[in-house]
Design a protein around this nucleic acid. Structure first.
Lengths: 193, 193
DNA sequence: TTATTTGTACCGACCGTTCTGTTTGCTTAT
DNA sequence: ATAAGCAAACAGAACGGTCGGTACAAATAA
């Protein structure tokens, strides 16, 4: 049961490739070559390219959930500020990531219409992200920073949808300040009084 | 000099195919077969698949600009309501379009990182859309519905970024009411007083 | 041994593109 | 009017390359 090129490595490498090149534009050969594994090992570990994608989506989702959780965890600053800082940080990372954006958002867009399994998986991961953010939104409502009469789920969805829209735009402009400003304006508009 | 399969038809057909299948997942053969033309005719009209895409982006952009202009043109209702109605209408169309979303948004996501020409073209079309919407935002500011102290460009960008984010999400959930509610919440949050 | 994992050659299908040859419709000379 | 000449438009077979996936023997573990 010794796997030379363990799944972990292929997944994390392939994940980055999918992020930057997209799914249809990425070949198995390139995944293998980049990882340093061979096709035999790849197809021994995954039954198809699609299944590999589903595994990668899952891994990416878990990664992001723990990243978001960490970013949002309680510290000295207020909930609304932690939310703002999290989105700011996400945009700040884009230049270093060559503006690859978010894998989930990219795949929803590329395969949402044509691949049922992928669209279900990405929709599911999106919901996972919302589940991490919503408690902090509720906290901000309790702080009186967000209007408590508005559904916390609706606010959370608005926040993350806007984030994804601005992130997609950043991919083509290769510029992240507009995105940061857009998120800031949104959060300020949601601020009660 | 008579062109049997005039460009117009190929472009409008191919445009819809790109919208629903994406660029990398769509072959010239399928474009030709769907349009009823042959490869000879296709490559006589376009020098490459990429050039065809650029032409299609342009055609789609013009189509959307005139559509948006029409939707937003002055009528009995207030500017802010026309904006809200436009986004509502856009979501209402999604089920009929099989949740293909917006071609510009899709291409920004799929090719933004890997294709310079396409990312420039899509960024340009996005700006064109903003140019159509911003005057109506200014009108809403004059009506006192949007805060006039906020940059109209920033408000417009926030509106359309959120729209794109929610549209992408709709692709994977195949459901458009969340998107409509998100846009409504955003517009109400932007409403002054 | 026996079972599992790896490396590599290979398959058929499909890709974007180019090719050759044919049709088409306009121009021009008669 | 009509026929020759011509260039653009068309049809669709063919090309080299790449794709996802498989076959199978060698290597490695149990």
């Amino acid at each position: 049961m010794n796997i030379k090129h363990d799944k972990e490595k292929v997944i994390s490498t392939g994940l980055n490739l999918i992020c930057s090149k997209g799914y249809n534009n990425l070949g198995i050969d390139e995944i293998c070559k980049t990882t340093g594994m061979t096709k035999g090992a790849f197809y021994n570990a995954f039954k198809s390219k699609e299944q590999f994608l589903l595994v990668a989506i899952n891994a990416y989702g878990e990664m992001m959930v723990s990243h978001l959780t960490e970013q949002l965890e309680h510290n000295q600053s207020k909930a609304i500020d932690r939310i703002a800082a999290m989105y700011d940080d996400m945009f700040d990372r884009q230049p270093n990531n060559n503006y690859t954006g978010c894998m989930i958002n990219n795949l929803m867009s590329e395969l949402g219409v044509t691949n049922q399994l992928v669209s279900e998986a990405t929709a599911n991961e999106f919901d996972n992200f919302l589940s991490v953010i919503e408690p902090i939104v509720i906290e901000a409502q309790k702080d009186g920073d967000f209007d408590p009469s508005i559904s916390s789920a609706a606010i959370t969805e608005l926040l993350h949808s806007t984030f994804y829209g601005a992130l997609t735009r950043a991919k083509s402009t290769r510029e992240y300040n507009h995105g940061k400003q857009t998120m800031t304006l949104l959060i300020n508009s949601l601020r009660s009084i």
